[in-house]
């Protein structure tokens, strides 16, 4: 905080980078999914076109003030999540505002956007919105359990909850990464990661055949543009979080891109080849295998 304006400038730079990275990442994922299906798929810059398109929509409707504010909450949640996280280890201009809080802040801030969005979507009065929210929230409660346990195991392992310090402890080669030093916690964390990214098979909340795209059914126009832009931040931020926690963080942008991309590919590939879980199944799955793994991870440090 020695120079406020510098920090701010750096934050803007990193936001710009991460926004573009997130957008392209989305495009690449579309492309990969298409290739798995044996299709060509859209161009990688398709997310930009979509964003411009929704921004160019000429009319909009609103169901009320909370509906209006929902995307704002959502986008704030995405940007805030990113801003509270150190992106590159040892690179001063990629530390964002990580002095504001530690891992717990980041974990809980994930909910900020979701909660605000849920409120906004629910005001639309469309029955599918709360239904999608119910499914999403229910699943989040289950997938957060192994994640929390993994985080606790990490905190117990490193004796700290500061992300920077956890990353610092993993420097110096793959042998120091948490995936090697704490494989059980990593396993639990990565299983939770599948749920948190909300790709198939854990994407019941948007199930297009039953409840057309779930919560944002009523959103359109520039509301949608906020949500699309948020997706770039939010997904990248979550990827960076997991990279920092389990895969040694990153010290430069190529490493960051490489690691987060590979991480994302895990969910994408699992999602592409799996059908969708029902809510009960996914909750039961999360509180069985991943949670038990997480408990084992924690018990290792208890005794």
């Amino acid at each position: 905080m020695e120079n406020f304006w510098t920090t701010l400038l750096y934050a803007f730079i990193s936001m710009f980078i991460i926004f573009n990275y997130g957008m392209v990442l989305g495009g690449v994922v579309y492309k990969i999914i298409a290739r798995v299906h044996g299709r060509f798929g859209p161009p990688v810059w398709q997310p930009y076109i979509n964003l411009v398109k929704v921004m160019g929509v000429r009319t909009a409707i609103s169901h009320g003030i909370m509906f209006w504010l929902g995307p704002v909450f959502r986008f704030t949640g995405g940007i805030g999540l990113f801003l509270f996280m150190p992106v590159l280890f040892g690179v001063p201009w990629m530390q964002n505002f990580s002095f504001s809080g530690d891992l717990l802040l980041v974990i809980y801030f994930i909910f900020f956007g979701q909660l605000g969005m849920a409120l906004g979507a629910a005001e639309s009065g469309h029955p599918y919105s709360p239904m999608g929210i119910m499914r999403g929230l229910s699943q989040v409660t289950a997938s957060e359990v192994p994640f929390a346990l993994a985080v606790i195991a990490l905190a117990a392992q490193h004796g700290t909850l500061s992300i920077t310090e956890i990353v610092a402890a993993q420097q110096g080669g793959i042998a120091n990464w948490n995936i090697v030093t704490n494989p059980v916690a990593t396993l639990a964390g990565m299983m939770a990661f599948l749920g948190m990214m909300m790709h198939a098979p854990f994407n019941l909340h948007i199930a297009p055949q039953e409840i057309p795209i779930g919560p944002p059914t009523e959103y359109q126009s520039n509301f949608l543009s906020y949500m699309q832009a948020n997706r770039a931040f939010f997904a990248s931020a979550k990827l960076i979080l997991f990279m920092n926690l389990f895969f040694g963080g990153a010290t430069n942008i190529p490493v960051l891109v490489g690691k987060t991309f590979s991480l994302y590919m895990i969910t994408v590939f699992i999602g592409v080849v799996n059908p969708r879980f029902t809510l009960e199944n996914s909750i039961r799955w999360f509180i069985r295998i991943p949670t038990v793994t997480g408990i084992i991870a924690v018990l290792i440090y208890t005794f």
Partner: peptide
């Protein structure tokens, strides 16, 4: 174990929210 700056969090969230 960790740290928390509530004032900063509130400020950042507030500013981002208002700007957006």
């Amino acid at each position: 174990l960790g740290y928390w700056n509530a004032t900063a969090v509130m400020t950042i969230v507030g500013v981002v929210f208002v700007v957006l």
